[in-house]
Structures are given as structure tokens and as C-alpha cells.
Design a protein around this nucleic acid. Structure first.
Lengths: 352, 352
DNA sequence: ACTTTGTTCCAAAACGTTTTGAGTTCTGTA
DNA sequence: TACAGAACTCAAAACGTTTTGGAACAAAGT
């Protein structure tokens, strides 16, 4: 490993001059700079991050921590983000330290990693309302960026989708088709985004003058089984009046609902409209559904580059207020949504 | 962040003494050591990895690199390993730097990360025969450990399953049940383990005096679709004589084969025996199959702790020869294997 | 000739740790 | 009392980088 000293000796220059030459400082002769650059290239010089960090306090490394869940289902999403973020960070010459959280104390792994003295900042995912990690990191002035927000009004850098808009768009679309009994299979309420969506759903329904009976709301970790089970329960009518439309928090859940509808011989969209929010994970493609799924769409992948940039910019000193991005999901109407069935003509009345 | 100097000032000691006290050197007074330890705890002192690395050349950080594939299917396995390894490394006070390989030059990301001067070693997964990463890292004396081996005889630390034994066990089990037409749905031949298995399969078959027609062998990235497609092709008979038993490289592939058998109204194990190698990923449980799958079983998770230990031990100076573990997979007989159907009584002759 | 200004470079300090070589203070023995 | 040896502690160097505070020199202005 060539060092600044090696280059200096080779050229009869001091390390100081070599350092300035390579870092583009103005007070070094253009010819000298060229000579330094050339020998640096020839010797394959790369600055030692360790030494850089020791003196500048910057290491060019950030951390990301995964919660290990007994159920690994949602972790595919995490991995998707992890690889995308790592690639995006590489473009900003930043490396990523990965750790896992096995304790039930959420800030512990962050503290442990921070105390190593090797990190410039963190990427936080899956925030919960009033996330303790956020308050902890903020308290000690550690830069971080959040995928999403832990509350509506925040003062840290983040990138996320407008969950309120997602629900308004979904409810409005279905209401415009005449639906009045709209159910919502939400994600885990523990998570901030699911909280936001639930509140937004209720507001949007109220704005349309529609009521939301308790059994029209469910929330759980998204899975096909969850969608099937809750879908079947709602559509069987044993919980109360049946919905004519179901909004799902994820396409995986929607897949379950579609299976439930199939098992009940319900036609989608004739008897039942189904839509979902689509994170556009490479595995579950909403177009491959039958019928093709109407969705609000915001690819997870799209978050990686802005998240990486926001964090690195913030570490570089850009104010948090400049680094807050809330994007609006696209509404993509496909074949799983349609006009509400005429009253008295829905399959339950006609067959039963 | 408390430093050695802080502790030294507090106690009126030099940083040298504080350092020795904390690192358990013998030439420091027991009372002094206690006092140092206490104030270190009180001040929440944690050694600065950066400074440590600069002077010792050790950082307590290792690297792992994921190949980003357009198809993310096999990456679930990688993520499973990644989290397990990270946890196992944490137990050895070692952190993990994660990077992704987007180029088609396999050593490039390793070089890039190494040149940062922050890593003590690497964990390599999915070796290919004569893996270029192995030769490159070996050439510059960088410690590493491999999950598996890139060839039969190696001189580096590794942990892997005995793929030869897996195939011998599988073939012997089926041969003992009277099967003579045994097919093999292998993994990607690009990978070393699949290479080893194919050779071992051929040897084991030859040892039993059984021939292996070309159409009894297939190899591809494991997936349900692959198992279904190749299974259907083999069992339809349009490629040649039909197998009475199929060995699958993964349970995912076996799931596809079982579906193909179902579609052809073949009874398993009455008409067809199916077995697979089971990496025991949390998602696909072989016991949940119907019929429950006979497998050679070696949980991926089991590899994490030994891999982490091998690497850290190797970095600590333990010779590679001491750090080579080849474990034998368990053979678990369940309900998907049975005696070969009597000649002339198999469903193709009776129904057709 | 003397000062000023600008350009180009350098020596040295700093970051926090480990480690070397050299004291300094105790203890026990002659 | 003197001395050897053990026990304990310290100052300083080192790792590779950035950054501070000049220094040397030339060109330009007075």
C-alpha cells in the first residue's frame, strides 16, 4: 500500500504538499500537482480511510442495522433496500457497515456500532411512531436519514412516500366507482407508515361521507396468508356487512385476498374490487396477477439513491430541511377495480 | 467519547499505563488496573477502532460482498447467511462491511474495499471452480474464509458440507429401494458445489452399476419453476425413459417436481420417489411438503458460527489447516421415497 | 534599496491507540 | 547501609493522514 510519504520521497516533496496536491488545494503548482497525480496513479495510491478518519473525523462509512425477526418474511424488503443502498452509497464513495439487532433494546446496536468510532452516520428503516432510535441519535448529534418518517412533522433528513396521499387516492378512486363499503387490510400498526395510513384512510373515508365499521379494518405483517384469512373472513359476511372493495397495504396481501375471492366464487372486479399499494419488489409483480392489480405504486428501489445522497449530503453539512423528500405514489388503474355491483344484484343476494 | 487520555488525566496516569491496564498486561499493579477499569466503565470508554487499526494493523472488521443478480431468487440464501454471519461475528467482537458487486470483474469489489485499508479479511460465498477471488486474495496474503470450496484440495480456511457424501447417501438410499432410473436436478453448474455434486452423482451411480442417460441430468438456478418444468419433461417420457426417482439439489426444486407429479397424477412415493438436499431455510420447510420430503439436511444457519470463528481465528494467526471443516449432511427419510414400482405396474403402463 | 504581495512549498502538530525503551520506586538480601 | 532485582510507571515514537503556521523566493510597487 503506497502512502503519501512514498510519493513524497519519490518526488522529493513533503507529505503536506502531496496531500494538498491530491486534494486539489489551490496553493500548489499545477506542474507539481500533475507530477504528484501521476506518481500516485503509478504507485496505485489510495488514501487510507483509517488515517483520514482519525484526523478529519470522517470515515466515509455509514451503518445500517437489521432487526432479526423470527419470521423472515419482511426481511426480503430489507435486503432489497440494503443492496440498493450499498450500490447507491458506493457512487458517493461511501461504504456500509451492516449489523443485526438481536436484543429488544432498539438503540443498543446503534450505540455499540457508534462507539467503535468508525461511522459517519446511519440509515434507519421501518420507523415506529416516536422512534427511540431517532431521539437517541438526534440527542448526540449523529447524522442519519430515515426511510419514511416517525411522525408527521420532523426535522431530520428522510425520503418516503406520502402515505396520506396513497390512502386518499385509493379511497377516492373506489368511491368514484360507487363503492361505499371499503375495507382496509393494513400493515403492522407498530410501524409509523401503517399508523399514518390508517389515520389517512379514516379521514379519506370520512371526507367521502363513508363509515368504517371496525371489521373493515385489519392490520398485520403483510403476507399472502394474512390477506387470504382476513379477506375470507370479511367476504364471508360472518363479521358483519361485506365490503365491495378492499384496499391492501401490499400486493402480497392482495394476492391472498384474490385467492379468497376465488374460493368464494367472487368475480374480481365484477363482485369485488381489490387494490393495493405496490412497493414493486422484483419478486411480486402486480401485472402478473389475474386480474392485473390496480395499485398505488412507488418502487422501493427508487428510495435507495435519494436516501444515500441525503445521508452523505447531511454528513457533508447540508441542512436537514434541504434533505426531506416526500414523493407521491403513482396511481395505476388495471383490471382489479370496477364499478360497485348494483345493490341486490351482488352474488350474495343472487345466489343465497 | 472518552479516550485513554481522559482516563489517564482523571487518575493521574499516563496513557501507556491505562492502555496496558485495560489490555491485561502483567506489568501493571492490580489496584491500578482496578481503578483504571472502574473509571473506564464510568466514562463509558470504548477503544477507538480507527486508532487501534492504525497502529496494530487490525481493525476488527471483515468484508462480505454480494453479487447482485437480475434474478433475486438465490439472494434470500445470501441474506440468510449475511444476518447469521453478522451475528456470529458480533460474538467475536467483529463488525462486517457489506458491499455489492455490480461489475463482471469478480475481484474488483474486493480490491476496492481492501484498498480502503479498513478490513482484516473477507468471507467468500458461492465459490466457482478455481475461483479468481481465492487466487487474488491468496496472492496478496489477505485472510479469508470460504463457505464451501472452490476445488477438492485447498489450503485455506473453509466450512462446507461434504457434497460427495450427499450424493452417495442419496443414490444409495434410492438404489437400496430398488430404483435404477434415478434423475438429478442439480443447481447451477457454474458453482463449485454443483460441479462436485454432479461428479459425485455420476460416481455413485456407476458404483451402483446404474447408467445415467443425458436427459436424467439437469442443472439450473434452483426454483419451483425449474423443478416443475424439468420434472414434467422427464416424467412425461418425451425425453426418453422415465425416471422412477428424482434427486433435487434444493427443496424448492423438489416442490416443483412434486407439482409436476401431481399434474401427471403420479403418486409420490408410490409411482415416483423424490428427495432433495435441504439447506433448511426458514421459509421452505421440508416437513410441510406433502408428502413430507426425504432429504439430506444441512442447515445453512449452522455454517455461520464456524465460518465467523474460522475467519477470526485465521486473522488471529491460526493456520489454515486447523480451520477446515467439512460436515456430513444428515439423511432424513420421510414419506416422499419408497420402493421402486414393479416393472409393468407403473402408472404409464397401466393407464396408457 | 525597501517594503509589499503572491506563489509555492515545508515542518510540525494533531487524531487515539499500541509498544518500545527507559526510568523510578519498592522489596528483600547481603 | 548498600545493592540487586522485581514491580511498576512513563515519555516518546509510530501508524497515515489533514491542517496550521510559517518560510523561502520572486515579482511588483514605493
Amino acid at each position: 500500500m503506497a502512502t503519501l510519504k512514498d510519493i513524497g520521497i519519490e518526488l522529493g516533496l513533503s507529505v503536506a504538499t502531496v496531500s494538498r496536491a491530491l486534494n486539489g488545494f489551490p496553493e500548489v503548482n499545477a506542474r507539481t500537482r500533475d507530477r504528484v497525480r501521476q506518481t500516485a496513479d503509478r504507485l496505485g495510491y489510495r488514501p487510507n480511510r483509517i488515517a483520514q478518519r482519525l484526523v478529519t473525523g470522517r470515515s466515509g462509512m455509514v451503518g445500517m442495522i437489521a432487526r432479526i425477526q423470527p419470521d423472515m418474511s419482511s426481511d426480503m424488503i430489507f435486503f432489497e433496500m440494503l443492496t440498493g443502498l450499498t450500490a447507491a452509497l458506493a457512487a458517493r464513495d461511501t461504504d456500509l457497515v451492516f449489523a443485526v439487532d438481536q436484543s429488544d433494546e432498539p438503540v443498543l446496536p446503534y450505540q455499540r456500532l457508534l462507539e467503535r468510532g468508525i461511522l459517519d452516520g446511519f440509515i434507519l428503516n421501518a420507523p415506529v411512531p416516536g422512534d427511540p432510535r431517532v431521539t437517541w441519535l438526534k440527542a448526540r448529534g449523529v447524522p442519519f436519514v430515515v426511510h419514511g418518517q416517525d411522525q408527521v412533522q420532523v426535522d431530520y433528513p428522510f425520503y418516503g412516500i406520502d402515505n396520506r396521499a396513497v390512502m386518499v387516492d385509493s379511497v377516492d378512486l373506489l368511491a368514484a366507482l360507487g363503492h361505499r363499503r371499503i375495507a382496509f387490510l393494513n400493515g403492522e400498526l407498530r410501524l409509523a407508515f401503517a399508523n399514518d395510513r390508517l389515520a389517512a384512510f379514516r379521514n379519506a373515508m370520512a371526507a367521502e361521507g363513508l363509515s368504517v365499521p371496525d371489521h373493515f379494518i385489519a392490520s398485520d405483517d403483510p403476507s399472502e396468508n394474512y390477506g387470504y384469512g382476513r379477506g375470507l373472513a370479511m367476504l364471508s359476511g360472518r363479521l358483519g356487512p361485506r365490503p365491495t372493495a378492499i384496499v391492501c397495504g401490499s400486493t402480497l396481501t392482495a394476492a391472498g385476498v384474490l385467492r379468497a375471492a376465488r374460493d368464494l366464487s367472487l368475480n374480481v372486479p365484477g363482485d369485488l374490487s381489490v387494490m393495493a399499494h405496490d412497493d414493486a419488489l422484483p419478486k411480486h409483480r402486480a401485472t402478473n396477477f389475474s386480474p392485473a392489480l390496480t395499485v398505488t405504486r412507488a418502487p422501493m428501489r427508487d428510495a435507495c439513491v435519494p436516501l444515500a445522497n441525503h445521508l452523505v449530503d447531511h454528513i457533508d453539512g447540508v441542512a436537514a430541511a434541504q434533505l426531506q423528500t416526500l414523493i407521491r405514489a403513482d396511481v395505476i388503474v388495471r383490471n382489479s377495480t370496477g364499478p360497485v355491483p348494483e345493490e341486490g344484484k351482488d352474488p350474495w343476494h343472487s345466489t343465497q
